[in-house]
Design a protein around this nucleic acid. Sequence first.
DNA 1: TATGAATGAGCATTCATTCAT
DNA 2: CATGAATGAATGCTCATTCAT
Lengths: 226, 226, 226, 226
Amino acid sequence: MNNLSRRQQNRLNKQNRALEAALKVFSEYGFQSATMEAIATEANLTKPTLYEYFGSKDELFKAMLLAPRDLMMLAFDEEEDEHVSQLWTFAWTYVDTVMKPEFLSLARLIIGDAKRFVEIGHAYQSSGPDRVLEGLTKYMERQGAQKRLKIEDPELAAEDFWGLILSAPRNKALHIPDYAPSIDMLERYVHNGMKVFLRAYSVDVVKDLDKLSNLIESSSKKGVSR
Amino acid sequence: MNNLSRRQQNRLNKQNRALEAALKVFSEYGFQSATMEAIATEANLTKPTLYEYFGSKDELFKAMLLAPRDLMMLAFDEEEDEHVSQLWTFAWTYVDTVMKPEFLSLARLIIGDAKRFVEIGHAYQSSGPDRVLEGLTKYMERQGAQKRLKIEDPELAAEDFWGLILSAPRNKALHIPDYAPSIDMLERYVHNGMKVFLRAYSVDVVKDLDKLSNLIESSSKKGVSR
Amino acid sequence: MNNLSRRQQNRLNKQNRALEAALKVFSEYGFQSATMEAIATEANLTKPTLYEYFGSKDELFKAMLLAPRDLMMLAFDEEEDEHVSQLWTFAWTYVDTVMKPEFLSLARLIIGDAKRFVEIGHAYQSSGPDRVLEGLTKYMERQGAQKRLKIEDPELAAEDFWGLILSAPRNKALHIPDYAPSIDMLERYVHNGMKVFLRAYSVDVVKDLDKLSNLIESSSKKGVSR
Amino acid sequence: MNNLSRRQQNRLNKQNRALEAALKVFSEYGFQSATMEAIATEANLTKPTLYEYFGSKDELFKAMLLAPRDLMMLAFDEEEDEHVSQLWTFAWTYVDTVMKPEFLSLARLIIGDAKRFVEIGHAYQSSGPDRVLEGLTKYMERQGAQKRLKIEDPELAAEDFWGLILSAPRNKALHIPDYAPSIDMLERYVHNGMKVFLRAYSVDVVKDLDKLSNLIESSSKKGVSR
DNA sequence: TATGAATGAGCATTCATTCAT
DNA sequence: CATGAATGAATGCTCATTCAT
């Protein structure tokens, strides 16, 4: 990593600045209303430099959207057998990431321009939701195999979990940008979502709901759980 | 209705043509990329006429989005005591409406421009999702009172139902415009969603799942259920 | 005058309303920025009616500018031998008319569009300043003949009088629309202008300046002299 | 001045071309009727370049009107004691400048748009007429102090001189753009104006008028005095 | 005759993109 | 290789003018 010439370093540096600036400006104004001028200014670069690197506004847009982003940690400890707390952790991590204003802005951008940037929609779907769901699906499969959850179709189970935890606040937030759901709001959704999921899927419902209660209680004692 | 002069008729007629054209062009290109010229052409009108009617591109956009649309029938028969088939009917009607390409286009438009047209987002939310959820919430309340479903928080129950039935295909469709979910796909989601919901909420799970199986079976015999 | 049919009366009536509205709107906005719409609204007429009467914006503009206006009373009593008070009266009447905001607006309009409405400039010049100067010229001639003023070229004398009385405040007012010269200001100019004129032109300077002093004094006693 | 890079030179060059073109086009058509297109074409520039430099039509207009212009030489030799010829020189210089078609066009522009560009009117007044009158006022003061002219109020005296020399032809020229006063015409006004001024203001009228006669005679011998 | 409803032609302004340096 | 300075192509919007009625 350190064997890049200073020139190349510099170049990378500028590229990153450009991508960050693009993210910021596109998120704020949308694709069309964002101007190359504004992005260049934000990145402390000149327009021709932008063109040198990315060729066109379209390309810059795509590059920005496809830039690797650390989406979220998805690791479920394969050895760990306590699925309730694992789901709990996953839920909070995910909700936390996905409901961030920047993340929502990005989503709005992708959705709004989905028709004109078809590849982008695909790319986003497969690098974002799909990857997450894939991880979650495997987890469900494992839990099913270990008889902790009654899983018939692990993919559907994963999607159900997602839908129960997140769909309501996310949809609202997508439509209403200033809707900043309070932590209480999100808790309401996460707790309820988990409860419903466990009621439908747990092999040992009583025990799992009990575990959930403990988690909720301890998190509320500690204050914000995140 | 028939006591309008020919002039007024004509005027209304043109307005409607304009709104339809706007829907079409905005849906296709997004707000910024759509031009008044294109809309005028599509509507077989001239630009100034558009301005005469709507004053500005912004106003036309809003008018188009706020134009009354028959969203969907929400009527739950209050006397009917068979909640499974009622939910089933609701689910299909709603999925059917919401997953229509035009409806998805509209949603993309609203989400994409949510930041610049804040009122629109609000208006859409309250006239669309909120109204539907409100109806569903009341229904859940009633079913809870009649001990057919174990409802603690009827609003959350409504949102859970929505999330289980629809969120997965809708999210995917928002990102990927050419993702036209087959009827089989949608069935998979609806059936699973209902099953999970009933598992979590039914007072008499066995009976309700049995009813659901019958519904599924009879719909598959008749072919397309809609 | 009364033998016009009601129709014709009506027509005249509307025409006048149109001309007044045109005066008002053109004065306020200038030729180009004034819209036929605005004039029609102001006149409580519709655009096509305006076109019916005047044919075009240009024509309306001309018609408005050429509409007879009672400029000012110019009558010098031919028998009256007191030239100082006659000039005094004339000066005040004239200053009073010409420095009115409406009159200045009109003048600005004519000057500003002089190049594009050449006839208008001519018409205005001949119906306005020229007519006044003509009257004043004849008066100067008479006073010369009667040896009350030393007139060589009566036209130049008339113009001198005009220039001394009015040119300074008028020029300033033309450039600066909110410059509303106080009555004191105008008095300063009128008094000085008359004094200088009499010093240069009177046959009996002492007597005339004395008379002027009396006029000034009595006017200041009576308060506003007009 | 020569240490400007070629770029800066070029830039200045283009700015000047733009300002000249603006002067030409605005003078010809008035503010509203002049188009940026026309100005750009006249300046051999493109519209965006115009916008790059001036930001808007309004700004360009203002920049053009406020561009420094060598108004006229106002220098009165303070040592010189021959006031008649000094006034004579001043009169001719001023008349010469102010009656130039370009200058009159500019004045028409300012007057015509005085209401919409209030600052411009002020700026013009203070940088043009006011500055000239100020110079003339000081001169009058000095002549009064030195007992060559009977000056009570030097400012009024200056305005009187201006009004006598210039107001008549200038007013006419403002209304009638093709009124190009012949040199004879202007002489008539200048000579008469000076005569009247001296009759009213000279301490030694006879001597001063005599001097004036000599000036007139010698100028007419030499032909055009300018 | 009078009017509500068009419309054609323009115009200020913007912006992605490209040169010349 | 980077940049300041252009520019071509659009686009929203306006308004004088004209039809049908």
